[in-house]
Design a protein around this nucleic acid. Structure first.
Length: 559
RNA sequence: UGGGGCGUCGCCAAGCGGUAAGGCACCGGAUUUUGAUUCCGGCAUUCCCAGGUUCGAUCCCUGGCGCCCCAGCCA
């Protein structure tokens, strides 16, 4: 870990633990892991975990495993595995050879279970789920022992083998750890280790009809892989004694330790699997990759650079406090990245025609324009200018408010990289009275955007040639919810808090001609508007752009 | 009223007994052919509260208060 990294990565309690473990010689090197269950799509909360685990491995010269925690065949699918791998890779992390599956350890788990039974530390219970629940006790009352709790090891072993052999129906028997039915920590009241589930698994097929529980499979998986620091979220803290119990009562090749951190909450969105699923399946959004969603596939489609997501995960830190990170932190990371990497381009979202009356009819000039104002490496391009152009409707005000320094009747403004123009007349639709066109004059001496007489023009607006521009569809995205903490509070339905204006589709935008062949791998800055990228919905002759983020706008803020 | 956590600026977050980093947000001001960027400057005499220990406490102790998690054969 070099000095630069130490400075760039904020300290956190997990790094402190690892540093201490390393310098005390408790570990020679570290192994972490990201252990998703392949039962859904990854979201930015997972990104926090991915960046943490892979980042630790990177900074401490260790290694991070990608392990699918596939112990519940009823919920898991290979389709999810593929999306998870794609998302982790997109984020920029490489698990190399270290791709693992809990399902590859099934035989080992089974051996561990038999070992526990033989040692008198586990038994087969034959109560129903309902009976088990009733005897578990409550938060304040101890549980009651199952009538089968004192079954002999031999009998349990026989039953367990027959469970594996498929002799019993789902729910008729279950393997339980023999710990303490009176434990104040409910997780220790003889937790379930193995259940019968006559369901085919997407990887092991029909080979098994009993499947291990998370609390049993996870610590063993970690130990088998030599994981040193097993990092999970806070709600698993109560499970740590059980994690340790499993490790301590089995003979395993390593002694992993579990540490917990606070999961991410982001304002104006939701992160729970259940809510995301509901938004998608009930059609509140267009799919798992809807650009308004905090799913990694949504962020990707939205155009968020993976580097920005990584920066975000570094910036928010890792702690144990419940937290709601302001969406502006993420947006700032996106802007920071895109300001440096996005080539500039001009596009008019809501066109208003302007005729420059003293500009020669039929003439076209090729204006030379820099692709990035602060970085010459981006080069220059040429943009056609003509007598008829489009400007942004909101860049004209018939009655300009105080402080407005764009175009207004009798006012002069600079067309970016072109000429100064002055508005001489407003043309209206006789029926509706709506402004349909502006008549202007230009100053031929101001070519390029400055006048030899040195006169100051405060406003600069973007434009596009009426003749030489291409039509595009632009999708303007905004926050999915209209409140910072959707669903928080009593009796609030998060679905009632959806932002009705979270997407606005503009169908007759006009872009400079080069955008007809926009690069799908690039994010562009539409000058004065924001950052945009080509969407997969683009068709030949009709590019579709997603707005990734707006530019900061101190004018609309003050107004 | 069982157990486990957490409480440092509006939102995050360093800090680990020696006198409150940083980021976002916000508010100025400079530069600017993007009202963008960039750049300067401001923004916690105070660390949930109350006692105590100490020369000295956000950091230690005691007692409160507030918030989160746990009673799946889910992970």
């Amino acid at each position: 870990m070099d000095d630069q990294l130490i400075e760039a990565t904020p300290s956190n309690f997990i790094r402190n633990i690892i540093s201490a473990d390393l310098s005390a010689g408790r570990n020679r090197s570290i192994v972490t892991r990201f252990p998703p269950e392949p039962n859904g799509y990854l979201h930015i909360g997972h990104a926090k975990s991915i960046c943490l685990n892979f980042g630790l491995a990177r900074d401490y010269a260790g290694c991070c495993h990608l392990r699918f925690d596939d112990t519940n065949p009823a919920k898991e699918e290979v389709e999810y595995e593929e999306s998870i791998k794609r998302d982790v890779a997109w984020l920029g992390f490489d698990w190399g050879e270290h791709l693992y599956y809990a399902s590859d350890y099934y035989e080992k788990f089974y051996e561990c279970a038999e070992a526990l039974i033989s040692a008198g530390k586990a038994y087969v219970d034959s109560q129903s789920a309902e009976e088990m629940r009733q005897r578990r006790g409550t938060l304040t009352e101890p549980g009651v022992a199952s009538p089968y709790r004192d079954r002999s090891s031999a009998e349990s072993l026989d039953l367990f083998r027959r469970m594996r052999a498929g002799e019993f129906a789902d729910g008729t028997h279950i393997l339980r750890a023999r710990i303490d039915m009176a434990a104040p920590n409910i997780n220790l009241r003889d937790p379930a280790l193995y259940r019968i589930k006559k369901t085919e698994h997407h990887r092991t097929g029909a080979a098994w009809c009993i499947y291990p529980m998370y609390d049993f499979a996870h610590p063993i998986s970690d130990a088998l892989e030599g994981v040193t620091h097993s990092i999970c979220t806070l709600e698993f803290e109560d499970h740590r004694p059980l994690y340790d119990w499993v490790i301590d009562n089995l003979t395993l090749p390593a002694r992993p330790r579990q540490y917990e951190f606070a999961r991410l909450n982001l304002t104006y969105t939701v992160m729970s699997k259940r809510k995301l699923l509901e938004l998608v399946s009930d059609g509140h959004v267009a799919g798992w990759d809807d650009p308004r969603l905090p799913t990694l596939s949504g962020l990707r489609r939205r155009g968020y650079p993976p580097a920005a997501v990584r920066t975000f995960c570094e910036r928010i830190g890792v702690g144990r406090n419940d937290n709601w990170i302001d969406m502006s932190v993420l947006e700032d990371c996106v802007r920071e990245e895109l300001n440096d990497t996005a080539p500039r381009v001009m596009a008019v979202l809501r066109p208003l025609k302007v005729v420059i009356e003293n500009y020669p009819e039929g003439e076209v000039e090729a204006m030379e324009v820099a692709n990035h104002p602060a970085n010459p490496d981006f080069g220059v391009r040429t943009v056609p200018f003509g007598r008829e152009i489009y400007i942004e409707q909101e860049d004209f005000a018939e009655e300009p408010p105080k402080g407005f320094f764009r175009l207004a009747p009798g006012k002069e403004v600079r067309l970016r990289n072109a000429y100064f123009i002055t508005c001489t007349a407003v043309v209206r639709d006789p029926a509706s009275g709506a402004i349909v066109e502006l008549r202007c004059s230009y100053d031929p001496a101001s070519r390029g955007g400055s006048s030899p007489d040195g006169r100051k023009v405060k406003g600069t607006i973007h434009w596009v040639s009426a003749r030489d521009s291409v039509t595009a569809e632009v999708r303007l995205y905004d926050r999915l919810f209209s409140v910072p903490q959707p669903g928080v509070g009593k009796e609030v339905d998060y679905l009632q808090q959806l932002n009705p204006h979270s997407v606005e589709i503009l169908r007759d935008c006009r872009c400079e001609p080069g955008l007809a062949a926009a690069d799908p791998s690039l994010r562009y800055q539409f000058e004065r508007q924001g950052y945009f990228c080509l969407d997969a919905a683009s068709a030949a002759g009709l590019p579709v752009f997603n707005r990734i983020a707006t530019l900061r706008d101190s004018w609309s803020k003050s107004g």
